[in-house]
Write a protein that binds this DNA or RNA. Structure first.
Lengths: 238, 238
DNA sequence: GAGTGGTCTAGACCACGTT
DNA sequence: ACGTGGTCTAGACCACTCC
């Protein structure tokens, strides 16, 4: 029996081995099914998965081509900060610096994308790795969307860890940037002179409703955000 | 006819609407097929795609559960710098600063992951948006893997644009960081005092062979790397 | 052992988009 | 108009893994 995985692997080999160049047409499903001695459904599944990966481009009547990949994706895995630190073999530490319920003013309403005047929970926390400042977190949580957050004190559980036990989200936005530190960051993160911060900002929504906005600042000289990918090698080729 | 997309959408609605909580078991394929009045294959495709998205977890005999999503991904699209600038409505400018063939010394060999002594093409380029410095690129290309690069002058075509017309890659690594600028970056990017740079480093391989290493430095006060995602809403729900 | 998902088939009809 | 991919079906057999 010819499996769709083996067909995927063979097509990939053909691309990597330059049997088909980017932009080139590969045979249609019917021909491939005859070549491999399997049904068209099996070929279809293989080609469809390669198209989902961005490796092929398919259009009815026009056929299937090797994609010209002009943009290259990098998938960043953003973990809970605790597991990020513990997985690197370091000891995790957590301090809640500030906790306050406030009404959204125009500045914070814009950040979290919630209506002005609605109640927000504002938290500031410091995360440490082996006692060294690792991340300064400044977070707003919409109490309209997540009213139960009002009853959590966040002294022992970080907001990130609490949030993942709650609802899923349906939309998210991440912004990464490099910035000069503000006074609090310089002090709390014990930055050296001229050391910038690496900033991650994240907003999440469930349907149209804003859930949370968070700004995560890391010391620039020690923090690296890394993404590794094996694009094609997920099949067991001999 | 019940489509696999409508089943996907209904299951998603059930999850977002908390009909099924994270970790909870959803009905098996046979039951769902009877409920929806379609074949098991159709249900299978819907559930399998949701599992691929990380929204469901499936195990034979154990059934299908709503996934506990503890880590959240952000997909960064790294485009050719030219289209990145032109898509924002600005005019693209390009200057080749330096071009040199050199043998890999121990430092550069480590960066690109190629054997010491092998020939490398080293390029430094400046990319501008509306005449303002946007990105300083420092790139090494393995002439072992890509010998034809030796014959390209890179005066009019940027290395990024040339490379995508060449081979695909099979493995890549991206590192993002915030750093104080070096002297050249301060001058070429016309940085303000205390302005850090946002640095993207990328290495790519084809099978085990290193292709290229590039370090891209952006002015920290103006550059933002943004990623937006609609996790669940790719179906046409009314 | 038995229940569940994983895959394949042969056929069918349809939607789309190129020609 | 027609060639291509997109989807669905009814059935089958198998692989895994929980009990």
């Amino acid at each position: 029996m010819v499996s769709y995985k083996s067909i995927k692997a063979e097509i990939l080999n053909g691309i990597v081995g330059r049997q088909w160049a980017p932009g080139e047409l590969i045979p249609n499903e019917e021909d491939l099914a005859r070549d491999y001695g399997c049904s068209r459904s099996t070929v279809n599944r293989a080609l469809q998965e390669l198209a989902d990966l961005g490796i092929l481009e398919r259009r009815r009547k026009a056929g299937t081509r090797v994609a010209q990949r002009t943009s290259r994706g990098a998938l960043i895995q953003i973990q809970i900060v605790r597991s990020e630190i513990e997985q690197s073999g370091r000891r995790y530490g957590y301090v809640l610096l500030h906790r306050e319920v406030q009404a959204a003013d125009s500045a914070t309403a814009g950040l979290i994308d919630a209506p002005r005047g609605k109640p927000l929970l504002h938290l500031r926390c410091l995360h440490l790795a082996d006692g060294v400042p690792y991340q300064l977190e400044s977070r707003w949580i919409s109490l309209v969307a997540l009213p139960s957050a009002r009853d959590v004190d966040f002294e022992s559980v970080g907001p990130n860890e609490w949030l993942v036990t709650q609802v899923p989200y349906s939309r998210s936005e991440h912004i990464f940037s490099a910035a000069p530190p503000n006074a609090e960051e310089r002090e709390r993160l014990r930055l050296r002179p001229d050391e910038p911060v690496f900033v991650i900002e994240r907003r999440t929504w469930l349907a149209a409703q804003a859930l949370t906005y968070v700004r995560l600042a890391h010391p620039g000289l020690s923090y690296r955000m890394i993404s590794r990918e094996d694009d094609l090698l997920d099949e067991t080729e001999s």
